[in-house]
Simulated scan of single mutants.
Amino acid sequence: MKIKVGFGYDVHQLVEGEEFWLGGIKIDHVKGSLGHSDGDVLIHAICDALLGAANLRDIGFHFPDTSTELKNIDSKILLKRTVDLIIAKGFSIGNIDATVALQKPKISSIIPKMQKKLCEAMDIDLEDLAIKATTTEKLGFVGTEAGITAYATVLIQK
């Protein structure tokens, strides 16, 4: 068995008037992620981690922000395509550990919904996806609510 680890990171600016998508769930909030797709930083970080682990470059290579086909695309579609890419290379997902850094809104109560939605998209068990949330104690662009970040570590196996 071959085991590989990948790490992903994404950041998006938060602006008023944009929809706020996180973990495949639309969240009611005064600000949303500015992005070419739906701006779901959690999904983008997971995609980058999976692609990196399989040595398949990064999310921008496979899903460029210059593509009109991908404008406003649901990031769950990108996640499914990413999983298809690693499966085509002979890998399966072992587990994913992800952290979202945002000041507001508090997302603890919707993490189970995000886990369910993302596990369905990746066809993995709930126990194989951990999602955590943190703040930056009002420091930096996350603390001032100017942006949101997500980090993901994955284990894939062949």
Score class of each variant (00 low, 15 high):
residue 114 M to Y: 07
residue 128 D to I: 02
residue 45 A to R: 05
residue 151 Y to E: 15
residue 97 D to W: 08
residue 14 L to D: 03
residue 30 V to S: 10
residue 69 E to D: 14
residue 124 I to H: 08
residue 81 R to K: 11
residue 155 L to M: 07
residue 73 I to F: 02
residue 18 E to G: 03
residue 143 G to A: 11
residue 145 E to N: 15
residue 111 I to P: 00
residue 59 I to E: 14
residue 140 G to Q: 05
residue 107 I to G: 00
residue 68 T to N: 14
residue 157 Q to H: 14
residue 99 T to W: 08
residue 148 I to A: 00
residue 54 A to F: 10
residue 35 G to Q: 06
residue 142 V to R: 04
residue 140 G to Y: 05
residue 77 I to C: 01
residue 88 A to M: 06
residue 75 S to R: 03
residue 99 T to M: 08
residue 119 C to V: 11
residue 5 V to R: 10
residue 38 D to G: 02
residue 64 P to V: 04
residue 100 V to P: 02
residue 112 P to T: 04
residue 43 I to F: 04
residue 124 I to A: 02
residue 156 I to K: 02
residue 146 A to C: 11
residue 5 V to H: 09
residue 87 I to H: 14
residue 11 V to D: 08
residue 107 I to L: 14
residue 93 I to W: 07
residue 149 T to I: 06
residue 155 L to P: 00
residue 43 I to R: 03
residue 30 V to C: 03
residue 25 I to C: 01
residue 70 L to K: 11
residue 135 T to L: 04
residue 49 A to M: 02
residue 117 K to N: 11
residue 70 L to D: 09
residue 71 K to M: 05
residue 53 A to G: 09
residue 95 N to D: 14
residue 39 G to Q: 09
residue 89 K to F: 03
residue 126 L to W: 04
residue 58 D to S: 13
residue 87 I to N: 14
residue 33 S to R: 09
residue 112 P to M: 08
residue 118 L to R: 04
residue 31 K to S: 05
residue 65 D to K: 14
residue 7 F to V: 00
residue 12 H to I: 00
residue 129 L to D: 06
residue 54 A to P: 08
residue 97 D to R: 13
residue 89 K to M: 06
residue 108 S to F: 14
residue 94 G to L: 07
residue 21 W to I: 02
residue 144 T to A: 10
residue 144 T to F: 06
residue 143 G to L: 13
residue 39 G to N: 10
residue 129 L to N: 04
residue 150 A to Y: 11
residue 100 V to Q: 11
residue 93 I to G: 00
residue 5 V to D: 05
residue 116 K to N: 10
residue 67 S to D: 15
residue 124 I to M: 03
residue 37 S to C: 04
residue 139 L to P: 00
residue 76 K to N: 08
residue 135 T to V: 10
residue 152 A to E: 04
residue 140 G to H: 07
residue 90 G to E: 08
residue 155 L to R: 12
residue 79 L to A: 03
residue 47 C to D: 07
residue 101 A to P: 00
residue 38 D to I: 04
residue 72 N to L: 11
residue 85 L to T: 06
residue 89 K to W: 04
residue 142 V to G: 00
residue 78 L to F: 08
residue 70 L to M: 12
residue 9 Y to K: 03
residue 31 K to F: 10
residue 79 L to H: 06
residue 78 L to M: 07
residue 145 E to C: 09
residue 125 D to E: 12
residue 31 K to A: 04
residue 3 I to C: 01
residue 4 K to G: 11
residue 43 I to P: 01
residue 58 D to G: 12
residue 64 P to A: 12
residue 25 I to L: 11
residue 33 S to L: 02
residue 41 V to I: 01
residue 121 A to G: 01
residue 58 D to F: 13
residue 49 A to D: 04
residue 26 K to F: 06
residue 64 P to F: 13
residue 87 I to T: 13
residue 63 F to K: 05
residue 93 I to R: 01
residue 147 G to S: 15
residue 5 V to E: 10
residue 123 D to F: 08
residue 46 I to W: 12
residue 66 T to D: 13
residue 76 K to T: 12
residue 143 G to H: 12
residue 138 K to W: 13
residue 73 I to T: 05
residue 4 K to T: 12
residue 45 A to W: 11
residue 118 L to T: 03
residue 70 L to V: 02
residue 27 I to E: 15
residue 52 G to H: 06
residue 105 P to H: 05
residue 87 I to F: 06
residue 70 L to E: 12
residue 29 H to F: 15
residue 1 M to H: 13
residue 43 I to C: 03
residue 17 G to H: 12
residue 27 I to G: 00
residue 60 G to D: 03
